[in-house]
Amino acid sequence: MTHDPFIPTPHRIVEKRQETLDTVTLVVEPETPFVFAPGQFNMLYALGRGEVPISISGDPGEPSRLVHTLRAVGLVTDALAALEVGASLVVRGPFGSSWPVEEAKGHDVLIVAGGIGLAPLRSTILHILRHREDYGRLAILYGARTDHDLCFADDLHEWGGRFDVEVRVTVDRGSPAWRGRQGVVTAVIDKTDFDPARTVAMVCGPEVMMRHTARALRAAGMKDEQVYLTLERNMKCGIGQCGHCQLGGELICRDGPVYPYPRVAPLMRIREL
């Protein structure tokens, strides 16, 4: 019989990290290697509550560990974020398109992320670091609402300590203890050293942040074709059959979630599309 795309697989949670007050990273070790491309997502299930699409935040070069980072913002994600080590994480996937890590070979890579938006880009960063010689300069620009909302703080410290990565972190509104940069992430773009002619930008964050970032990148001399971003919508299947994730003619779970910016820019401008 045909493989049933609606049947999930449970995996035992082996590690849990609290990233922020409402954001956790869950690690499972699948029995067979879980092969995925950076930027792809899985449908994660909470018993009696349902499924949600969650990006894979782990290293594609380490398929024995499957890593997701999620924020508790609703019925399903609240339950997922409450799972502890030893519990089952129920997974279907991987689904969707991936970041252009092949096309970006030989280019500088500019990562621009907002909040939990660093999760799908973390898998790309780890991929690039694993194949560091294939890429030019790597800059990671990361913004969060406050310093308490910074995800992957350990990673950011490690990446920032390397000589071959430029990391710039900024928060919209710092706590009294914050001594770092304050302001929106788009403001640090022109402080970053990159050659617009040979750079690929990968952007993930709230839609308004991505629109502003695309505009700032254009102002910095990049063409829209060099910019990629990832979109989010309600999803019930992950395989283009439920119709929920449509944005105009795009089925985001099947055609996306990662898109070249010019393909979705006109759609992102239309209200309620």
Binding site: I7, T9, P10, Y45, L47, A87, S88, V90
Partner: peptide, 16 residues
């Protein structure tokens, strides 16, 4: 109906 998931101790069993 697609599938039933059932708690078996700490694990969840999948019954298509």
């Amino acid at each position: 109906r697609l599938v039933t998931l059932r708690r078996k101790g700490a694990e969840l069993a999948v019954e298509p």
